[in-house]
Write a protein that binds this DNA or RNA. Structure first.
Lengths: 222, 222, 222, 222
DNA sequence: AATGAATGAGGGTTCATTCAT
DNA sequence: TATGAATGAACCCTCATTCAT
């Protein structure tokens, strides 16, 4: 049977998945290798055939589930078009989707917070490959918008952080309060964008936007 | 001797402080009672004179450092006066101060994220006694502002979350990236308020505000 | 192919050789089957095709490398001629050669010392098939020499042990100090035989000693 | 009660003794900390209160039981008087006593042989502090005896090794064959000294040998 | 014949907790 | 009160052994 070969090829992935669930559930230190093994349907020893130590398992697991985020961030950087406001809105929506819906991305934040001090490389990597580029992109967009007269110049400093904050905040609430957090995601996103643009636009930018449809909410009259 | 008595009375507090530092450094599971003891300048056994178990020590430590936050939140709730916009601005400033400068409050977030699943009472308590009231207060302010025509009604749903998000986001960044995060707090706060009000106010509300001084940045003319 | 068949026939020997090196390097308990396998150029599982357990592998390895010694001892027993002194000298030279130069024989001593308690059959076997016969041969030679008036009768008891001791001692030093032990083997052997036959004292020394009391046991007169 | 304090002061020594017995019985690798603990009448964990790791326990145990040997060697170096032959005889008797009767010293040899490769510092130390000085002392005695005309000059090279060999050989036999080795120690020592001083041959035997060729190196004149 | 993934029993080590002093 | 020696339950990791391929 190919059965065996198929299992073998899948094992590392299965173990990484089990590791994700286990570490997300209890944190690095409180998770036992046996927990991971049980979730993966193997015995303790089997894990060591694929991963050298508990630390390595954790690192590779984080690396595994970060890849998507990192790659997507790059794609997203290139894909957007339109006015600065439109592009920024698109970015915020993407970001929100990531944060609100992708449990893997969300738990990455938990890993950073919980165990970042013990795995500084992981933190650096996330900073270098995800956080810093994403922030830079937003900052660039803001600068471009300001240069074009679309955005008010007051928001230049640290505007990027404030723009992504609501999405990350939702992630954090879900990490902490879990299911008890009942949130209407559509409303959350709509309000977020509403805030964002209402506070951002110059009169010229508003007129520009007013001709489009996003947020075309009589704010033009402001 | 008084010296001894004084020491005795201070011991629990010293231990709680040591526990805070130790747990903040490595998380609940990875922290040893001996770490705490060493920081407190006592031996392992002494801790058990004051705290039944490691779990209880953690819980009481979190409770100890939460009290201030909880109490302050109540005080703050009562203390603000003025237009809704002014009160909201005051709240945001207070919140930002808490998040940006108070390391104890910041680390509480870490404890919630890291060990909340193992200490659900702590999470509930924070939710009940701090998070929910604070959110309710903001929501009430928003509702009042909308009713008075100061605020645009579009931001009613989940507006509170979005308003506090930037402050919490800064806390989170500091929890994760620690010292490498160079942030100009004044600029961060200014931008945050700028966003907030620019997106929030009706023409009437703006006029109102324009006569005050907060954020009186020509936005009235927008 | 013949190649394959040849390999097949050689496998057990290759594994035994690898086992010898591995066990000699780290001892029975600290050696892993994988160490042996790696040295033999096969995988762990393959060893189990030829040897039932780690214990059996060890036993058969010791047996394998003991055979030569045992057989040679027999041959040597028969081959020597001449006066008793000449035959004894020949024996000592043979013994010295074995001990000084044959690494396999040397490591057998290590195995006896290190793991003899866990493999008593191996010890007994060595005793029965090598040590006891060799000692008996020397003792017989001594008895014959004494009977012929060639040897002094004082050395009858335990003379055999003392005669083989220098050779074994050299082996032991090499087992312990390894390369750091710089020894001129020719000189070592010459001195050994010299001692054996003539002792330490010059005629003057003997007279001296005879007059004193330490060991002044009229041996001159013996 | 002082009971507790007394036990506490004795514990390390008791553990070292237990470790000696356990390691001597099964070797370093095959001995479990629990074996040592059981012998010492404590639990596994207690050992770690006094010794950092299994390796350290082993090292300190060897150090502990080596001290006597090392110190005594120094004392012995100074204490002997008389002719060179008398002093050498005294040394041999001392050495024999050590090897034949002191089980601790004997087992040190086993540790060197079994685990020396994993604990090279222990081997070096024994070499530096015991073996080399002892050998040097014998060599010096031999040189002095030769210079005085007491000893035959032929035995200058490696004479020391050959002189101590019989004692060490007995130790080795006991290490390997244990109780099954029935040895009359007095006879062994007497024969050893006899060989040492007078060699094997009777005057007749000497004459005989002088006419042959084996070792006919002017020794005939002895 | 050989591979190598997988098992499972242990062994070294840690650490929360206890308790005699 | 406080100490610190001691316990004992886990936990991480290793490795002899098995077995489907």
């Amino acid at each position: 049977m190919k059965e065996r070969a198929r299992r073998k090829a899948q094992r590392p992935g299965e173990i990484l998945e089990a590791a994700f669930e286990a570490f997300a559930e209890r944190g690095f230190a409180a998770t036992r290798m046996e927990d991971v093994a049980a979730r993966a349907g193997v015995t303790k020893g089997a894990i060591y055939f694929y991963f050298e130590t508990k630390e390595r398992l954790f690192e590779e697991m984080v690396g595994h589930y970060s890849q998507g985020v990192l790659a997507d961030a790059g794609a997203m950087l290139a894909a957007t078009r339109g006015t600065c406001a439109e592009r920024l809105t698109a970015f915020v929506k993407y970001m929100f989707g990531r944060c609100a819906q992708d449990r893997h991305s969300r738990e990455m934040i938990r890993f950073m917070v919980s165990d970042g001090k013990c795995f500084p490389q992981l933190v650096w990597r996330h900073y270098r490959e995800f956080f810093a580029p994403a922030m830079a992109m937003v900052s660039d967009l803001l600068a471009e918008g300001i240069a074009r007269g679309e955005f008010r110049p007051e928001i230049a400093r640290h505007g990027a952080e404030i723009i992504v904050a609501p999405s990350v905040f939702l992630s954090l609430m879900r990490l902490i309060f879990d299911d008890s957090m009942e949130i209407d995601e559509d409303a959350y996103l709509a309000t977020q964008v509403d805030f964002l643009l209402g506070g951002l636009l110059t009169p010229a930018g508003r007129k520009n936007l007013g001709e489009g449809k996003a947020c075309g909410d009589g704010r033009a009259s402001i």
